[in-house]
Each structure stands twice: as structure tokens, then as C-alpha cells.
């Protein structure tokens, strides 16, 4: 989907690898990027809390899966 510069023939395989882990997305989208106050967006402190909560949730889901527990989807 995202293509590399033409000078990078070896890498499209990596570039096309958009099947990234949710944790990597969350780490970047909720903890990285420019933070703007916006009109409606939650307070910045709230987003940080949401981020911590999501990581905890992903952790517990991951831990359960590693322990072989089938979680309802």
C-alpha cells in the first residue's frame, strides 16, 4: 500500500507490510505525533490515561492468549 521511493527495490516487501501489530500502532498514534488541543478532543492528560489503559488492555489480552485462554471476540 505505501510504496517506497523508486530507488528502493528491495524494500517494498517491508513497505507493504501493513499488517502491523496493534501495539505498534497505538504506541505511535496515541503517544507520538503532534498533539493539538483540538475543539472536541479529550484533554491531553485524558489521552495519556487512555493510552496507558489501552496498553494494559492489550497486555492482558496478550497474556491471556499466551496462557492459552480463548477470549470472546
Amino acid at each position: 500500500m505505501s510504496s517506497l521511493a523508486p530507488s528502493a527495490p528491495a524494500a517494498p516487501e517491508v513497505g507493504a507490510q501493513r499488517d502491523v501489530a496493534l501495539i505498534d500502532l497505538v504506541d505511535r498514534l496515541l503517544a507520538g505525533g503532534v498533539v493539538l488541543a483540538g475543539d472536541i478532543t479529550l484533554a491531553i492528560a485524558d489521552i495519556d490515561l487512555v493510552y496507558v489503559g489501552l496498553r494494559a488492555l492489550i497486555s492482558s489480552v496478550g497474556a491471556a492468549e499466551r496462557a492459552g485462554v480463548a477470549l470472546p471476540r
Partner: peptide, 19 residues
């Protein structure tokens, strides 16, 4: 493990620290 290319989330000012 290599992932990318990403938008430069880690390299723009005003970002919150990664906890």
C-alpha cells in the same frame, strides 16, 4: 524486526513521551 515506512510520529515536536 523492521517496520515501516511510518509517518514520522517519533520525530515531530510536541509529542507526548512514550510511557
Amino acid at each position: 524486526e523492521l517496520t515501516g515506512p511510518w509517518p514520522p510520529y517519533n520525530f515531530v515536536a510536541g509529542q507526548a513521551g512514550v510511557m
